[in-house]
Design a protein around this nucleic acid. Structure first.
Length: 498
DNA sequence: AGTGCAGTTGACTTT
DNA sequence: TAAAGTCAACTGCAC
């Protein structure tokens, strides 16, 4: 019987268990389904598709070298299964589990129903530390360590593929009817560039990762930049984790290597954290749309102020550091974590926009958009989880702290060219006029109003009851909670990093 | 030399 | 991965 390997967000042939197992069984038909409805969603964008296109093109080359082919079907996934069945008769379906957005979840349910209806075996494999139908968060952390330590599955030696005239053409964003979305500094997709990126991070760029990841001045170089590759699977999480551990083991501990070791340990923690977040959306897909804590329903209006949303989307909020970040994101399709958090916090607290609107906009901007990290983070930076401290960033303080010389601001906000260094963080304090807008909201007034609104809800009765539920379901567990001084503390508040 | 005082630092609390 | 406020301890300086 034919084995259909359905490539999704796993665009590689190494450490690919579905492909390896299918190839051992017999004839393989490797398929990528370009689903037009998915690419029309408000969280999809042409820059993401362009990245995927790079990946598919290289995957196709690699499969051809193995005597196989990657067929590209532009249609709904169920229609693709029907088409394959009409052409080849019964088959076995192989793929990786995916924790995507609500749309892909619904599609997977339709595919499951189809396979059941046609008695088609569907073998799904995990490729991250995310657990499907997780009963409890207890023990999750050690499970992650165990899964990541499992051996890497080699690429199949050969991939027998039947003759077939299915299409192999990879459509362009234009073919798909996607809105124009220029992203001149976008990272390229593909396995080769993923491996080079991993290597340069582990041997050159990552030395001061721990300290340089916070500032956008240094983070573009010092961060791993593996995120789009992990999102689209040109590199597996297991490969990234094991390469990091290997590198860590080969560096002898000494004062001279302290920075390297700290950075790599910190990075390894980030990989764990990556899956920890995705697990939240896996457990509770409603996080994409609804407040994690229902007490915050109605906190913000359902529709934000259109002028504020437009200013945010166009990077003209009047806060130089915020606008520099927004414009950098537009050009690169990437931003370091801290600045993403600041942007989301700014949209939610300063601009009081509902998180779904600003969250969709940011999702489209990220080439590495990972729904399972994105939506839980969006809610965390909007104060609607109920279980984290309210983190309202001060964009002026962040500017002085992370771009003291104003180099990042000047790189992305040319309107501020003439403004002296002393005023680049707060140009409204400079006496002269510029073409740069004045702040769209007053920092002190806006954050005071936001804080008051959030704390009014926190204080209300019944808030803590649901907090306990949210924590039980989603919070990370620590084996040795840090003890706090004297005063007794609500155990629910202990060690809740996320 | 000790005192008073303004300013700074850091730990801790509150929002 | 917050920021701002509080408070006590400390510092440097003038007298």
């Amino acid at each position: 019987m034919l084995n259909v390997v359905w490539f999704k967000r796993d665009l590689r042939i190494e450490d690919h268990r579905p492909l390896f197992n299918a190839a051992e069984r017999g004839a393989v038909l490797a398929v990528y389904v370009v689903e037009p409805d998915y690419w029309q969603l408000e969280d999809s964008s042409a820059r993401q598709w362009d990245f995927v296109r790079d990946c598919l093109s290289e995957l196709q080359t690699v499969l051809r070298a193995k005597g196989s082919e990657l067929f590209v079907l532009q249609m709904d996934a169920v229609a693709a299964l029907d088409l394959i069945r009409a052409r080849f008769g019964d088959f076995t379906l192989w793929s990786h589990e995916e924790t995507g957005n609500d749309w892909t979840y619904a599609r997977d349910k339709r595919v499951a129903a189809w396979t059941k209806g046609h008695q088609t075996p569907w073998h799904e494999f995990t490729q991250t530390g995310v657990v499907r139908r997780l009963g409890s968060r207890n023990g999750w952390a050690s499970h992650w360590d165990r899964v990541m330590a499992e051996p890497i599955t080699p690429a199949p030696k050969s991939i027998p593929t039947p003759p077939c005239d299915l299409p192999t053409h990879i459509p362009s964003a234009r073919d798909l009817g996607l809105a124009s979305d220029p992203c001149p500094e976008r990272q390229s997709g593909g396995r080769q560039v993923a491996l080079r990126t991993l290597d340069s991070f582990l041997h050159v760029r990552g030395r001061n990762y721990r300290f340089e990841m916070s500032s956008p001045v240094t983070a573009f170089d010092a961060s791993s930049r593996l995120s789009p590759h992990l999102t689209w699977g040109t590199l597996s999480m297991r490969e990234a984790a094991q390469a990091t551990w290997r590198r860590l083991n080969e560096i002898e501990p000494s004062p001279a290597t302290k920075a390297w070791r700290n950075s790599l340990t910190s990075f390894s923690g980030r990989l764990h954290w990556h899956c920890h977040f995705i697990q939240k959306l896996e457990d509770d897909p409603a996080i994409e749309f609804a407040n994690m804590h229902s007490a915050y329903n109605g906190l913000r209006p359902e529709t934000g102020d259109p002028e504020r949303l437009a200013a945010f989307m166009e990077g003209r909020t009047g806060y130089p550091f915020v606008d520099a970040c927004l414009r950098a994101l537009d050009r690169h399709g990437w931003l370091n974590f801290r600045m993403r958090a600041m942007l989301m916090s700014f949209a939610s607290y300063h601009l009081w926009l509902p998180w779904r609107e600003s969250g969709l906009f940011l999702a489209r901007r990220f080439v590495d958009y990972e729904p399972g990290i994105h939506w839980p983070q969006v809610q965390m930076q909007s104060g609607t989880t109920g279980m984290n401290t309210v983190r309202i960033y001060n964009p002026i303080k962040q500017s002085y702290d992370h771009d003291p010389q104003g180099v990042f601001i000047r790189r992305y906000v040319p309107e501020l060219d003439r403004v002296p260094d002393a005023f680049v963080h707060e140009p409204w304090k400079w006496g002269e006029r510029t073409s740069y807008p004045t702040p769209i909201v007053d920092h002190a007034a806006a954050t005071k109003a936001a804080r008051d609104a959030v704390y009014a809800i926190r204080k209300a009765s019944r808030h803590s009851e649901e907090t306990a539920r949210v924590i039980a379901k989603h919070a990370s567990r620590k084996s040795t909670p840090r003890r706090r001084s004297s005063k007794s503390v609500d155990p629910a508040q202990l060690s809740l990093k996320f």
